[in-house]
């Protein structure tokens, strides 16, 4: 507990220092000093950006406020604070299930999402790491061909390969309707993750590996004991981005796992039903569904944004 408190205080101290530094830069850096028409333009744009940000935040605030109202109050008091504050909507949201939701509650959907997105992330990040390391650091026959084909597959848009993929999953691999099938689709090692890790490994110093080789370590030991710990930063960042992507994925679980809906699939069933029953319960469901992602984002916002940016620039 004490350790958590220390980490928390350390984090906030760092945050406060960053903010102070940003303020100082804005006020004293010659590059960002503005006057006259430029200053007016920046004030105008600040207002525009603020309006835009409010358009993002206001609906969430409105939903949060209404999630604590009884259904009877929502119809009469949509814009005001809850008069009869209740947590019942959250309790109902956790337990609600019927035929339209495939008899699955939000907790079961959450568990399925954790399983598929979690294992999918682990597998795909691992395969990407293995492939990227070998292609970046080892000279072998066909290395350039592999790299060129991966780039080609990422650049050239293929429209509608879904029908063929479905046929393959059903008739060839027989993985249709299974959790393993979903994870198998996610598990490819060649994708955007591969490119990010490839560029990291390409710039990685070979000195440690040479030293380990002199000491008699084989390639597997070097990879697991030296390379993976050295690549911990980018691997964690890619894992978080991948986890969010798989957490929100609709198509794969909707097609290949219709009987066991994940959160992204099941929420649609829940919303369809709840819109006819109780809006506040639907709002509570929304809050429950986005909370894990928001916590993850709050904890790793800097890592996520920096690495998303890098990924985009490489495209």
């Amino acid at each position: 507990m004490a350790s958590f408190g220390y980490t928390f205080r350390k984090h906030w101290r760092k945050k406060r220092d960053d903010l102070r530094q940003a303020k100082y830069t804005r006020e004293h850096d010659v590059l960002f000093k503005r006057k006259g028409a430029t200053k007016a333009l920046f004030i105008f744009m600040f207002v525009i950006l603020t309006i835009f940000v409010i358009s993002f935040l206001f609906p969430f605030a409105w939903i949060l406020m209404n999630a604590f109202k009884p259904t009877s109050e929502f119809g009469l008091n949509m814009m005001g604070w809850p008069k009869d504050f209740t947590f019942q909507n959250f309790v109902d949201a956790f337990t609600f299930k019927d035929a339209t939701t495939k008899n699955k509650s939000i907790l079961e959907m959450l568990a399925m999402t954790v399983l598929i997105a979690g294992v999918g992330t682990l597998v795909t990040v691992f395969t990407s790491t293995c492939a990227a390391y070998v292609v970046a650091k080892y000279k072998f026959f066909g290395r350039n061909v592999i790299f060129a084909v991966v780039i080609f597959s990422l650049i050239v848009p293929i429209v509608g390969s879904l029908p063929s993929q479905m046929q393959m999953m059903k008739n060839v691999l027989h993985l249709d309707g299974t959790v393993i099938g979903c994870i198998f689709i996610y598990s490819g090692g060649f994708g955007a993750n591969f490119l990010l890790l490839y560029s990291f490994f390409k710039n990685l110093s070979w000195t440690y590996v040479e030293a380990a080789k002199v000491d008699g370590a084989n390639d597997f030991v070097i990879f697991f004991r030296i390379i993976i710990p050295m690549a911990k930063g980018p691997i964690i960042a890619i894992s978080i981005i991948q986890l969010i992507g798989l957490w929100n994925d609709y198509q794969t679980p909707a097609i290949y796992l219709p009987k066991y809906p994940t959160l992204a699939v099941g929420l649609q069933f829940l919303f369809e039903k709840m819109q006819t029953l109780s809006y506040p319960m639907m709002f509570a469901t929304i809050i429950i569904a986005i909370l894990p992602i928001l916590i993850l984002f709050a904890a790793f916002s800097k890592t996520i944004m920096e690495n998303t940016s890098v990924g985009g620039l490489k495209g």
Partner: peptide, 27 residues
């Protein structure tokens, strides 16, 4: 160009990318 609260704007602008599409469209 570091407009006032630029860091905050960046964080908020990123939010739609991490929220499931079904939630965004429903809201």
């Amino acid at each position: 160009k570091k407009i006032l609260a630029s860091g905050f704007f960046k964080v908020i602008f990123f939010l739609p990318s991490i929220i499931p599409l079904i939630i965004l469209t429903t809201i």
